[in-house]
Nucleic acid binder design. Structure first.
Ligand SMILES: NC(=O)c1ccc[n+]([C@@H]2O[C@H](COP(=O)([O-])OP(=O)(O)OC[C@H]3O[C@@H](n4cnc5c(N)ncnc54)[C@H](O)[C@@H]3O)[C@@H](O)[C@H]2O)c1
Ligand SMILES: NC(=O)c1ccc[n+]([C@@H]2O[C@H](COP(=O)([O-])OP(=O)(O)OC[C@H]3O[C@@H](n4cnc5c(N)ncnc54)[C@H](O)[C@@H]3O)[C@@H](O)[C@H]2O)c1
Lengths: 247, 247
DNA sequence: AGGCACTTGTGAACGAACGCACAAAGTCAG
DNA sequence: CTGACTTTGTGCGTTCGTTCACAAGTGCCT
């Protein structure tokens, strides 16, 4: 479904890590978090079973996921935590720093700017922009709020790669277009709307209203899983995933 | 993968709307939003093609999704917007009001409490709780912040069905357990951790850090879709989805 | 009335993802 | 060095989801 796999093109695969399934990619950050947590607790080695439990998935799925990155892990022993952390980080591209701009300094935009969880991985918020004149020049998380009119200049100058949209829905498409025109190729959209972007740009959407509606649906019918209790399962958030709509 | 379908049981399906696929459920809110937007613009009828474009999906997928709810829609004409809005709303359980409690009145919790998009659908935030003494009794979005020690009482008294976790990860599991024990059966979790819950409770997770990492991954490789431009696609956010881990 | 253009709903083919189960590969004790 | 035990990596059948393509229904125009 998702077009992240290059259509039919590029079938030749010399390197082992070629064409990691989207479902796997979506889980790698979860594994990474579980691993870093284990590392902080002094664990140096984990079996797929233990790590799977930590991450809330089945062990078979975990092993298959990891096998897509290569054969790290030692039979009879397990995986070396630190080494695996490095490998997953590298695969996800977290060894480099990513430069992020947040557009919209409302409730959500400010919460995001203040959030420490970004910088702790390789994501640096380099700019925070808004249209409201009374917000401009206010300082949020050590950054001054800039006028949206500066958007093109800032993106080019700061070499922003990832844009975060936290504005009302009606403004999102226009701002997205401007960001893309200025060179952004990845967008994280919090506005409740569909964005049209050229094919080389990837959009991911976070929509809280949708999440609540899905919960409501399941609660309305059989009350969640349907069985009494027990059973292993995942924690949803996201599944497949890329995005683009004809530009 | 998600346990929302009762294993192998219940194969007989007399009613048309029996066992809607998870992937479909996750898209219904998107259709609903597109439809309400069209309704506001005075549109009374849409074809699957138009609606699909509005929602950012393919028309075949949209028709199949809608067919799971029943045969609303008229051949040769399309769907009546208002009627379809009602049917989807009913299917999602939005005809009743859902009572939500937010735990954690930090940056994110306050942003959520202030967000109008919840109430506009059938979700009412009935309580906002926190542990920090200096936040308690502060007023946010017309609600006083309550002490977490009140959690059990408030959930029972206000008949909270959905709990939202916006606390640090370390406190999330404990608070989740308490909410579940107090009667909550649906949890929306913003803390970056996996929650263990009994089988009858559904958890959905929203993790911004994960989203950024997925964007980084795709950008690091072929730069999104891989092709030059054009092409239809989805906007990701979420896919399958339930959750429970042996209690 | 009949033909025509249009759109839904769905059967069937295809593809992606999951989970089982097991052989291969390693460790460790003796 | 051997043999028992542990755990990875993966081939395979199954399930779930998407896409194609078309028959069946609807409205309109002549
Ligand atoms: N707050 C939440 O919890 C929440 C939850 C779900 C979705 N959202 C969505 O996230 C978005 C932001 O939410 P919020 O609560 O921060 O809203 P908000 O009203 O607090 O903030 C929006 C900000 O965007 C700015 N803005 C408006 N037009 C702009 C433009 N053209 N260019 C630049 N900035 C502009 C406004 O000045 C304002 O500061 C909305 O689309 C909302 O639907 C928010
Ligand atoms: N702010 C963001 O943009 C953002 C983004 C992604 C994830 N998150 C996650 O969301 C959660 C909240 O983020 P935040 O930015 O609001 O953090 P925050 O520190 O601003 O707020 C956390 C709040 O939880 C309260 N709290 C702590 N322990 C508690 C307990 N035992 N019971 C009740 N309340 C308790 C604290 O008093 C504080 O008010 C965190 O887990 C964070 O990782 C936040």
């Amino acid at each position: 479904m998702s077009p992240s796999r290059p259509a039919g093109l590029v079938r030749q695969a010399r390197t082992p890590r070629q064409g990691i399934p989207d479902a796997t990619v979506a889980r790698l950050p979860v594994y990474l978090r579980a691993l870093t947590s284990l590392a902080e607790h002094g664990v140096t080695t984990v079996s797929s079973e233990e790590l799977a439990t930590s991450a809330g998935v089945g062990s078979a799925k975990l092993r298959k996921d990891l096998s897509h990155l290569g054969s790290y892990g030692t039979r009879g022993v397990g995986y070396e935590v630190e080494y695996l952390v490095y490998q997953i980080s590298r695969e996800l591209g977290l060894t480099q720093d990513w430069r992020v701009a947040i557009v919209g300094a409302g409730n959500l935009g400010r919460a995001l700017a203040n959030y420490g969880g970004f910088a702790s991985r390789g994501f640096t918020v380099v700019a925070l922009l808004d249209a409201a004149t009374d917000l401009i020049d206010q300082e949020v998380a050590g950054l001054p709020v800039l006028a949206v009119t500066e958007l093109e200049r800032v993106i080019a100058q700061e070499q922003v790669q990832i844009g975060v949209l936290a504005t009302p829905a009606c403004a999102a498409q226009d701002l997205c277009d401007r960001m893309v025109a200025a060179g952004v190729t990845s967008v994280l959209n919090f506005a409740p709307c569909v964005l049209n972007v050229p094919g080389h740009v990837m959009v991911r959407k976070v929509d809280l209203s949708t999440e609540l509606q899905i919960l409501a649906f399941h609660q309305q019918r059989g009350a969640a899983a349907g069985l009494g209790y027990g059973g292993l399962g995942e924690q949803s958030q996201d599944g497949p995933g890329a995005a683009e709509v004809a530009g």
